[in-house]
Design a binder for these strands. Structure first.
Lengths: 138, 138
DNA sequence: TCGATATTGAAAATCATTATCATTAAGTAT
DNA sequence: ATACTTAATGATAATGATTTTCAATATCGA
């Protein structure tokens, strides 16, 4: 029932809870793969017929702002979103079915420190993403 | 003079070497930060006035196909390209000036193997990218 | 319940990218 | 060097995704 938590988050941040937002939130929160705005629109309309595509874009924008979802970058495009895992997590995506799994990658600190030393950069953020085949698809 | 090598690559793969392509190749090859098609267009026109934006898109497409450039994913957008480093390398980007540095991240294998074991995924590819401030900007 | 105002969906506008097409130019064969 | 085949070009139009506009509606605190 994490969808209710998302709606609470919206409300606590001064946004109203509407039927359209419910449909979007329930659609995205339930998905185990990254979904595009158009997919959210199609799926969301099954829950709330009057849902508009523009509202999907606007709601996704707010969910991203509240760190409830994140944009997923893939070779084929970067317009899909998925719910955020707990804490700092990275994504593992199935190249066949799109299924997403989260993992922690905190073992990266030694590598990052070493790069910082070698390059003189101050490193603030890192992206790590793995691609492969999930247990079902392999 | 790596630009000449790129043009040779194009030629060896059956593509013609034209003034427009020279302008694009020289612009992208020389840049130490990721450049968008529009930026390539503007910069390239200083070398070859008649250059068209469409040709920029088409040339970038071919350079990517030949693995001479790669698309750079960033929070602000994913339409920029940068020349490929040698071998398997990762990117470190300055959040202020865009300056890019390459680094190798082969120490990732233990982490990747561990994730594969835990999740049951067969992992084929990985993306690692760091963001921070370069020595000049910090 | 009321009322201020955030939110909505439709339509139009914008922006990036791709397709069309007649013209030009690269590069091989002569 | 010249001719010729055909890839490549740039202008324009078409497409597709995202954003803006706006009048109508619905949320939610008072």
């Amino acid at each position: 029932m994490s969808a209710e938590l998302w709606l609470t988050q919206l409300h606590e941040n001064g946004y109203r809870v509407t039927a359209a937002r419910r449909a979007v939130v329930e659609t995205v929160e339930k998905s185990t793969r990254a979904v595009t705005p158009l997919e959210v629109y199609d799926l969301g309309r099954k829950k709330y017929r009057a849902l508009g595509l523009v509202t999907v874009y606007r709601t996704l924008e707010k969910l991203e702002e509240l760190h409830l979802i994140q944009r997923v970058h893939q070779p084929m495009g970067c317009q899909a979103f998925i719910s955020m895992g707990q804490g700092h997590q990275h994504l593992l995506l199935c190249q066949n079915c799109g299924q997403a799994a989260f993992f922690e990658g905190d073992d990266l600190n030694p590598l990052i420190n070493s790069i910082a030393r070698k390059t003189g950069y101050q490193i603030n953020e890192h992206w790590l993403q793995l691609f492969g085949l999930c247990a079902n698809c392999r």
